[in-house]
Simulated scan of single mutants.
Amino acid sequence: MARRVGPAPAAPLLVVGGYGVVGAQVSRLLRQRHPRLPLVLGGRTPRHARALAASIGASTVTVDVGAEEPLAALPERPAAVLAVVSDPDDHLIVDAMRRGIPIADIHRAAPAGILDITVAAARERPPAPVHLSGSWFAGLGALSAAAAVRELGAAERVDITVLASTDDRVGPDSWGFGERLAWPYYPMHDGRRRPTQPLSDLREVRCPDGVVRAAALIGTLEQSTAPLLLRVPTVRTRLALQSRASLYGLVGLKRSGTLRLLARPGLRRVRSALLERPGTGDFAGLTVTASNATRSVSVELLDPSGQAHLSALGAVLAAERVLAPDTAPGISFPEQYAEPAADLDALRRAGVVVRLSGFTRPPGPHPSTTARKDIA
């Protein structure tokens, strides 16, 4: 089953950062799922994308997110933009808003960043969709939560466990997550926001590969959005690393204050050596459990291709979302447009192991979802 997102547009989808660690996989997956969708791979050094673009029938263009108007010099107006790179000064997303170009951004996770974009949207009043897919694995945590909550009917809490590995591949934007680990965040607990320290409350949890590991609380976007969009009083996300020593090392950096010190520009090399060393690859996964007083249901995702591949899949679903003709203008989040049957089928087709526990029927579309045609 292909995710239904409307007829193939004549104008291209612009993938900014479409040739990096995650972006290259995004571009290939888009071509596999939508053979006739026009694709343009954008970035500061498009020459690095030439071989990839040639292999998938895409073109390249220079897009500098550091410029005030990154989209001003495009030779052709895109049908939509998928931002796979960090946009630290909000130039790309605001430029897309002003031009009325639909945009999906997978790097919106920090509370301050979400607040800034919400205020910018109030100012710009974008006439096109602005889809923020910054929860873990580019929105897959939120989509899985939506599937579990809809099956349960009414959930009192959602618990999410992310399984990652320090031996997996990471891109240059990985420090963005590490930096957030240094500061408090505000998850919903019993219907109220409560300040919480990342890497606190260590406890043993069952991971999607069936192994019980230590896991610690972390701040992620779905802890801000899912309580309101899915009406769940408590949403908590934890990080488990395949190496227990690596997790405890990260906790030690947090408790000693070293993570805050590493944010200083002069410690860039030290930060890179400690937290930005890419591995050769490892598996990754996600477990989402929705529960109430009488029942619980779970969605487990396990990807042998690792976290970059899972993030790429989430980004592809986000791109399909903004290309869909029924996506409303303005800001939206993955939970609002989740299509559990299509979402989970897309993951299975891409090689992700998907396990459902406690479901009484196969996941179906949201009742408000209208019929759409596939991109050819």
Results as ranks from 00 to 15, higher is better:
residue 5 V to H: 13
residue 9 P to S: 09
residue 9 P to N: 04
residue 18 G to H: 08
residue 21 V to E: 15
residue 23 G to F: 06
residue 28 R to T: 12
residue 29 L to V: 02
residue 30 L to H: 12
residue 31 R to M: 00
residue 36 R to E: 13
residue 40 V to L: 07
residue 46 P to H: 03
residue 47 R to Y: 11
residue 53 A to H: 04
residue 53 A to T: 08
residue 54 A to W: 06
residue 57 G to K: 00
residue 59 S to F: 06
residue 64 D to K: 08
residue 66 G to V: 00
residue 67 A to D: 00
residue 78 P to T: 04
residue 84 V to P: 03
residue 87 D to Y: 09
residue 87 D to A: 04
residue 90 D to Y: 14
residue 95 D to A: 03
residue 95 D to K: 01
residue 105 D to I: 04
residue 105 D to C: 13
residue 111 P to W: 04
residue 113 G to N: 15
residue 114 I to T: 09
residue 126 P to F: 07
residue 127 P to S: 14
residue 133 S to K: 09
residue 134 G to T: 09
residue 150 R to I: 02
residue 150 R to K: 06
residue 152 L to N: 11
residue 152 L to W: 11
residue 155 A to C: 09
residue 158 V to M: 09
residue 163 L to I: 08
residue 184 P to V: 08
residue 186 Y to E: 03
residue 191 G to R: 11
residue 193 R to N: 08
residue 194 R to K: 14
residue 195 P to V: 01
residue 200 S to G: 13
residue 206 R to D: 02
residue 206 R to W: 04
residue 208 P to Y: 08
residue 211 V to A: 08
residue 213 R to S: 00
residue 214 A to P: 13
residue 217 L to E: 13
residue 224 S to F: 13
residue 233 P to Q: 10
residue 234 T to F: 01
residue 235 V to Q: 07
residue 247 L to R: 00
residue 247 L to Y: 00
residue 248 Y to K: 10
residue 253 L to Y: 01
residue 254 K to D: 14
residue 258 T to Q: 15
residue 264 R to K: 10
residue 264 R to L: 15
residue 269 R to L: 10
residue 274 L to G: 12
residue 276 E to F: 05
residue 276 E to G: 07
residue 283 F to P: 08
residue 288 V to C: 02
residue 293 A to F: 06
residue 296 S to W: 03
residue 300 E to Y: 03
residue 304 P to H: 03
residue 321 R to M: 12
residue 326 D to R: 00
residue 343 D to L: 12
residue 343 D to P: 11
residue 344 L to A: 12
residue 346 A to N: 00
residue 347 L to P: 05
residue 358 G to C: 09
residue 359 F to E: 07
residue 362 P to F: 01
residue 370 T to C: 13
residue 373 K to D: 12
residue 374 D to M: 05
